[in-house]
C-alpha cells in the first residue's frame, strides 16, 4: 500500500485524483440533466420520473453516498493542492505579473469558481434535494421545482441558479480538457475528439441546465 500513498501524495497523483473525480462528476451531470428534462414533459411525467427513482431508494442512497465521497475527495484534494501551491510561490510576489498574456482566465480561477459552485451545491441540496426527501405525497415534486418557495418561481433562486450554471461552464471550460491533459491523452489522435466532447460539457450541458430557470422562472413563471 506504500506505493498507493506515495502516488496519492505526489503532485502528479493529486492531479490525477482531481481529474478522475472531476470526470466522474461530469458523468453525474449527464444523468442529472436527463432527469431535469422531464420537467419539459409536464407535471405528470416529471412526478412519475421522481417516484420511479424513489422506488429504487436503496440504490439511490448508495449512489448518493458514492457521489458525496467523490465530491469530498475532489474538494479536499483541491484544497490540499491550492495550499501546497501557495506555499510554493515565493514569500514575495511579483510587483508586475502579466498572467493574462500567457494563460486563459478560466485556468487561473478554478478555486474561485469551484468555491462558488460549492456554495451553490449546499444551497441546491438544502432547497431541492431536502424538500424532495420530505415531500412524499404524489404530484408534489413538479410543484416544488417550479414553485416560488424554493423552486424556479423564486427569482432569487432562479438568478442564483443561472449564475451557478455560468460558473459551471467556466469551471469545466478549463477542467474537462485539463483532466485529459493530466491523464496524458490530450495531444494524440484523440485530441480533436476530446475538444469536441469538451464543448458538450462546458457549453451545451450548463446551457441546457440554464434553460430550466429561464423557462420556468422568467417565461412561464410568476415573475
Amino acid at each position: 500500500m506504500n506505493w498507493f500513498f506515495q502516488f496519492m501524495n505526489s503532485s502528479v497523483g493529486k492531479k490525477i485524483t482531481m481529474a478522475t473525480t472531476g470526470l466522474l462528476l461530469c458523468l453525474y451531470l449527464v444523468i442529472h440533466l436527463f432527469g431535469n428534462l422531464f420537467l419539459y414533459a409536464g407535471p405528470e411525467a416529471f412526478n412519475l420520473y421522481v417516484e420511479r427513482l424513489s422506488s429504487l431508494k436503496p440504490l439511490v442512497r448508495v449512489i448518493e453516498v458514492i457521489l458525496t465521497l467523490i465530491f469530498v475527495f475532489h474538494i479536499w484534494n483541491a484544497l490540499r493542492l491550492t495550499l501546497a501551491n501557495r506555499r510554493s510561490s515565493g514569500e514575495i510576489s511579483y510587483t508586475e505579473y502579466q498572467a493574462h498574456e500567457v494563460s486563459a482566465l478560466s485556468s487561473r480561477f478554478m478555486g474561485v469558481t469551484g468555491s462558488i459552485l460549492f456554495i451553490f451545491l449546499v444551497v441546491h441540496l438544502q432547497t431541492i434535494w431536502y424538500t424532495f426527501q420530505t415531500h412524499h405525497q404524489e404530484g408534489q415534486f413538479y410543484a416544488v421545482v417550479t414553485g416560488n418557495q424554493v423552486g424556479f418561481g423564486n427569482p432569487v433562486y432562479a438568478v442564483f441558479y443561472l449564475i451557478a450554471m455560468f460558473l459551471l461552464g467556466f469551471h469545466l471550460k478549463h477542467g474537462f480538457q485539463s483532466a485529459f491533459q493530466t491523464f496524458g491523452i490530450r495531444y494524440n489522435k484523440y485530441g480533436k475528439l476530446i475538444e469536441a466532447i469538451a464543448v458538450i460539457f462546458w457549453l451545451i450541458i450548463p446551457a441546457t441546465f440554464a434553460t430550466i430557470p429561464i423557462y420556468f422562472g422568467f417565461l412561464k413563471g410568476g415573475f
Partner: peptide, 22 residues
Amino acid sequence: MVAQMDAEGFGACTNTGACEAE
C-alpha cells in the same frame, strides 16, 4: 524525479499553459 521535484517545494501543475507560452 517527480519525488525530488515535490521535495524541493515546487508546486503542482494546473495546466494553465503559462510555462509553454514563456
